Simulated scan of single mutants.
Amino acid sequence: MKTIKWMLLIYGFLWVLGFPVNAQETPAKEEIFSEVDEMPEYKGGQEALFQFVKDNIVYPEEAKKNGVQGKVFVSFVIDEFGAVTESRIARGVNPDLDKEALRVVKQMAEWNPGKKEGKPVKVSMTLPIMFALDENKQKKPNE
């Protein structure tokens, strides 16, 4: 009986040693892809995305007053759940226009996530947002 207890104790000890314990270990950062089998899609498609931007963009008054125009490129990640994360200006034009473009991108609804080998993954995207003033409104009546 004493031998069985010792054997159980030794097996139990060896069993516990079989599990690695590392409190300092941090999970590996998930990979963010730029190309996948199925790219993320804004719910409703590209037309819905353009309509969302058009409906929500507000041309900053200061930029309008100074005649500032241009294309702002906003980079972001669509995560495996379809949420917009890690938004940032990839190429800006003017602080006011950049801030507005970033604000609109952060407001976007969830997307259909991208997929690689049939599994949802994080995908990096870039959206160009064009700020253009109506030239006819900018000219004075006598010009």
Rank of each mutant, 00 (worst) to 15 (best):
V93T: 05
Y59D: 12
V123T: 13
E62P: 00
D98A: 05
L102N: 13
K115T: 12
W111C: 06
K122A: 14
N112F: 03
K65R: 05
V77P: 00
D55K: 13
I57A: 15
R88K: 12
E110T: 12
E110K: 10
G67Y: 09
V68R: 07
G114P: 02
K54A: 09
K115A: 14
S124P: 05
D79I: 12
G82V: 04
I57Y: 15
V105W: 02
T126Q: 12
E86M: 09
Q69K: 12
F73P: 00
K106C: 10
Y59C: 12
V105F: 08
L97T: 11
Q69Y: 01
M125I: 07
A83W: 01
L102K: 04
A63R: 02
R88C: 03
P60Q: 07
E100A: 10
A90M: 10
F81C: 01
V104N: 11
A83R: 07
I57W: 03
I78H: 01
T126F: 02
R91D: 11
P120M: 14
V72F: 02
E110C: 04
V68Q: 06
I57T: 15
T126Y: 03
E86T: 14
K65D: 02
E61K: 07
V105A: 08
L97K: 01
D98M: 04
M125A: 07
L97E: 08
K122H: 14
E62C: 00
D79W: 02
V68M: 11
E80Y: 07
A83C: 01
N112A: 05
V72I: 08
V123A: 13
K119E: 14
Y59T: 09
G118V: 14
I89N: 04
D79A: 06
K64G: 02
W111L: 06
K116M: 11
E86I: 11
V84N: 06
V58P: 01
G82C: 02
G118N: 14
K65H: 05
G67H: 11
G70R: 06
K119D: 13
E80N: 14
D96M: 05
D55S: 10
K65V: 03
T85G: 00
I57M: 15
Q69S: 11
D96R: 04
I89H: 06
N112K: 08
P95L: 05
V105N: 05
Q69E: 15
A83Q: 02
F76W: 09
K65Q: 06
N94Q: 06
G92K: 11
K115L: 14
V72A: 05
M108R: 12
P120N: 14
A63I: 01
V74Y: 02
G114T: 02
L102M: 09
L97W: 04
I57P: 08
N94Y: 00
T85L: 08
A101F: 10
K106D: 15
D55C: 09
P60H: 10
L97F: 03
A101Y: 12
A83G: 01
K71G: 01
P113W: 03
K119M: 12
E110R: 13
Q69M: 12
M125S: 04
W111M: 09
K54P: 00
A109E: 13
V77M: 01
R88Y: 07
E61N: 05
F76Q: 13
L102E: 15
R91Y: 08
D98Y: 03
G118W: 13
N66W: 03
